[in-house]
Nucleic acid binder design. Structure first.
Lengths: 244, 244
DNA sequence: GAGTGGTCTAGACCACTGT
DNA sequence: CAGTGGTCTAGACCACTCT
């Protein structure tokens, strides 16, 4: 008794439904933390079965776009959630415990994008960007020197908003202040030698080995929104990568 | 018309079925590359619906335990597959291309497990282990110095079997020679300074920054079977980590 | 043509949440 | 209590592979 006997497209129905819902999510129809319509509402609206909607939303949940609670509903995923804190932070202490870092701001300034920033963030030449420098501490000691670059077009007046909020983490701030949700990221890891600036800020000798993490963070649709370079002391911590 | 109205266990049926099938997989009932029974056969055997079996096996496919082909069947995943080659190798060239490494053997010897190896591999004191040293080249230049430690109980006479086969990769070798399939791994990354041995083998200066990758590879049930330490030159390559 | 996995529907029951 | 997502079933159709 299968319906939709004529489907000209080769694409599965649930994938089309998923695409449509994600598009509505991208358009900002529901902000981080807000509830989505129920399965039954979607099913009725798009004239498909509840099972098809379920499969679409289940995939979105697997992609960390939404979170679901039995009896409550489906909600747009948010870094504001307690258990999403430092979701992308991968430094662990020797004993395997992941301790959340504290942040010490250094500077924030509005600049013209460098060619490298233009390339990494997919900007147009001369776009203004905000450049944030900060230190992150683990067990009370400065372990990471971080440089964050974002477009001023996506995050207008970021420096001012940071001065007011003094947030420990950027991604909840992006959400609450700009409605921009970071959903995934790519990190390029390298071993580098500490330059004089690194050495001074992290209290190591020039030339000491540091783990450099070069991250592009992306919002819905894999659109890059942040470029971040972290230089980490890894004498007492390691970067944990889980492979499947 | 739901069956099984009385289910004393809180565990979902599909999860129980999955557990049972994984147990049979662990027991070696089907070797890497071999086909599993069809959904209908499982469903009839365990007296559940085809949909329940599908959900169980779909999860196993998501975990890379099996691969499925429409019209053909379900097969135990294998590193022997072309597209599984270097599945756990994450060094990419500056242009983003992942070039597969070549291997130059250095040494292989049977030793008593060090305390660190005992701890990392979950062995008992004094267990004999095989220690393999090798260089891996990218673009023709030695870039990675690798030390592999495995239990002789799991891989008896590994050195001899390696001498005969001269394999470029270890995991296909583990499968074909010992029937041991590596399904997941945990890597701890650090920046370290090249010691004299690293420097000589990789042709860099002592103290040069190297990316150290400390990996525990596991078979079914997260049982550790290999401990590997790689020291990598990352001047022309980076380790790619994708976060979701 | 028989057999495989993949999609879709329809309906039932469940656990849990809010009121 | 009604509404939510989660599980399970049953059956239909589809695309594909092998013989």
């Amino acid at each position: 008794m299968a319906k939709k006997p004529v489907r000209p497209t080769a694409r599965p129905l649930f994938a089309q439904i998923q695409e449509i819902i994600v598009e509505r999510l991208v358009a900002g129809e529901w902000r981080p933390g807000e509830p989505l319509p129920s399965e039954n509402e979607f099913a009725e609206f798009y004239n498909v079965s509840q099972g098809t909607v379920r499969k679409a939303i289940a995939q979105m949940a697997a992609d960390n776009l939404v979170v679901r609670f039995r009896g409550k509903g489906t909600f747009v995923a948010s870094h504001t959630d307690e258990r999403e804190h430092s979701h992308f932070f991968h430094l662990h202490r020797e004993d395997g415990v992941k301790e959340l870092p504290q942040t010490i701001p250094i500077s924030c300034s509005k600049q013209a994008a460098t060619p490298e920033a233009v390339a990494r963030l997919g900007l147009t030449n001369g776009t203004p960007v905000a450049v944030v420098e900060r230190l992150r501490t683990l067990d009370g000691a400065a372990r990471v020197f971080e440089t964050v670059v974002v477009s001023e077009e996506v995050f207008p007046n970021l420096c001012e908003s940071l001065r007011d909020a003094l947030p420990n983490e950027m991604y909840p701030h992006y959400e609450t202040e700009y409605g921009v949700r970071v959903v995934c990221a790519q990190e390029r890891l390298r071993a580098v030698s500490a330059d004089p600036r690194d050495a001074e800020l992290l209290d190591v000798e020039v030339g000491a080995p540091l783990l450099e993490i070069d991250r592009i963070a992306m919002t819905y649709g894999d659109t890059p929104v942040e470029w971040r370079r972290s230089r980490c002391i890894t004498s007492d911590h390691f970067y944990l990568s889980t492979l499947r």
